[in-house]
Amino acid sequence: MSRRHDDRLARILGGPVLWAGLAALTLFALGPFVWVFLTSLKTRADLYATPLRYLPAAVTSANYVDAWTSRLTPFSRFFANSLLVSSVTMVATTCVSILAGYALARFRFAGRNALLLIFLATQMFPAVLLIAPLLSQWYALGLIDTYQALIYSNFSFTVPFTVWMLVGYFDAIPRDLEESALIDGCGRFGALCRVVLPLAAPGIAATAIFAFVTSWSELLFAITFTTRTEMRTLSAGLLFMVGQYEIQWGQLSAGVMISTVPVAILFTYLQRHLIRGLSAGALKG
């Protein structure tokens, strides 16, 4: 009796409830993006129509073209800036972190555990804490409105995360492989490059992409350490656009899509590494 009752409950939970839940979940996650995407395709007349028009009467690409070529908020330039800052941050972070991660995984020295703890604790640090001192530091060094200031500041959140991830990857590689390379006459660095790196390559690549994406999304440093339009990254450019006289929602939506698509594509590649990355603080928002 109760058994049959339970089976029925399980069937309802697995049937209608599941499908309704999935529909709600998809709508919840995707709905706002669909709305912004539709907005980006609308003409001015459709955008500001009363009553609200949900679907564009005429599809236009004008918002994208305008955003990309605009003189006031040139998204082509923002895009290039973001690409440059994020790429350099990614490469530099990865090189630095490979060395540090390898040292922490392989050498037993005093303070190793304390260091690891510090890298973990840094994941908890807010960027706002660093804004005032970094801003005054970059002022003093004359680095306001430079890529260097942005890239260097980005290290404060990419490096601790990447080191933390790489220590884990390196720890998982058996030492015997290196030992034999060392006996065969490889130096430490040679063993790292020829034995460890190829084995850890997938993990390193994933971690590097994480570093890229977090730099791509970074907002606070980007608005604080730049003042000139041509130095803005995409995140800063989007915010800058809102500060204009009147918000151009069509163009802004196009800009939002431009900033989102690359990240979404990169993340679909990262699915497998996501859990580790997220729990280590890849995206802290």
């Binding site: 709305w35 907002l219 995140s235 989007l238 990240v263 699915q271």
Partner: peptide, 21 residues
Amino acid sequence: TVTLLPWIVPGVVVALVWEWL
């Protein structure tokens, strides 16, 4: 994958999307 989207996009994007909503 779709469920993940709100989490992986830049924070400023989330803020602006919702400002518009």
